[in-house]
């Protein structure tokens, strides 16, 4: 009995003293906390939809978005150089990162001479172990400032305003593939079709396939028609689908896209897309963002 005891103590003590540089390094390494998953998407915007990404703290992002006219069909073809003569929408905006999590922004859209105010907040971030998704909240209000097309189109000033809210649930499956689901709600005060609903539910979905470090394929789709919206409307509406490529060079992100949505802001393209991919209603578009760092330099602990 005693011999067994002594033997086992010898064994244990040899095991403990076998603690060497490598095993101690492994022990230290395992103590580290799981890392945040970064860069699910390259940019706060995909083709049409918002991504879970926000503008970094003290960065000011300048946005230019452009949608050309129909490539084919009645309004396209060689007469408009496949839509390049036409600009259905043009968006200029500034987004500012108050913190790495919170972004506010203003912008102006050519369509309906609309002013946009947006806020975006990163609520949860995916972890390498544990949390499987990132969740970001997005809200946007639009104010239409154009003159009325007919009398009493907007009886009250508030009829020009719409509000949009979205929850963006995103997951980076690998360094090359990310996917997101964006359940959304749009509240309008005025609808052009009497049978249409003022409040619309929409479900966005989008993905990125990174081909090289700086070059990705991107696509997104918004399901709104067929999701509780009346189908007996006078106007035929289509679900927006955009496909494009995204190129990143330092502080710039360029995206070159094809989409059926003629408009750039959610408040406009989700309810008002009357063009379809099937009858030549698809158009070319692009977005450019440039980031400017406007904060003081972050202090770094140096001893």
């Amino acid at each position: 009995m005693n011999k067994i005891l002594i033997f086992s103590i010898f064994l244990i003590s040899t095991l403990t003293s076998a603690q060497d540089v490598d095993s101690l390094m492994n022990a230290l390494e395992n103590d580290a906390r799981p890392d945040l998953v970064i860069a699910t998407f390259k940019s706060p915007k995909l083709v049409l939809l918002q991504t879970n990404e926000t503008v970094k703290k003290n960065d000011l992002a300048f946005w230019v978005g452009h949608r050309f006219g129909d490539i084919g069909g009645e309004f396209g073809g060689s007469h408009t150089l496949f839509g390049l003569d036409v600009a259905t929408d043009l968006y200029l905006g500034f987004d500012y990162g108050i913190t790495d999590e919170l972004t506010i922004g203003v912008g102006r859209s050519k369509a309906d001479e609309t002013y946009n105010f947006l806020a975006k907040y990163k609520l949860l971030q995916q972890l390498e172990e544990g949390m499987p998704v990132s969740v970001t909240l997005f809200g946007q209000s639009s104010w239409i400032t154009r003159e009325e097309f007919q009398n009493n189109e907007f009886p009250n000033q508030t009829d020009r305003i719409s509000h949009f809210a979205q929850i963006i649930i995103a997951r980076k499956f690998s360094s090359s593939f990310s996917f997101m689901l964006n359940p959304s709600f749009l509240a309008r005060s005025q609808v052009s079709d009497p049978n249409d609903k003022e409040g619309l539910f929409a479900l966005g979905m989008g993905g990125r396939l990174k081909l090289t470090k700086r070059f990705s394929l991107i696509a997104d789709y918004t399901w709104v028609n067929g999701l509780g919206r009346p189908s007996d409307l006078d106007t035929k509406y289509y679900n927006p689908l955009g496909i494009g490529i995204e190129i990143e060079t330092g502080g710039h992100v360029f995206s070159l896209n094809f989409q059926n949505a003629p408009f750039i802001t959610e408040n406009n393209f989700i309810p008002n897309t009357q063009k379809s991919w099937e009858d030549g209603g698809v158009r070319f578009g692009f977005a450019i963002s440039r980031n400017f760092y406007v904060g003081k330099k972050r202090t770094i602990n140096t001893n």
Binding site: V21, L28, A32
Partner: peptide
């Protein structure tokens, strides 16, 4: 950074995770 040094043998191991580096600009 994590590191272990054996003062008897002079062996040293050092390791730092790339994503723990903090920059002045987040981008």
């Amino acid at each position: 950074g994590i590191s272990v040094l054996n003062l008897d043998t002079g062996e040293i191991a050092f390791q730092v995770k790339i994503n723990t580096f903090q920059f002045e600009k987040a981008l």
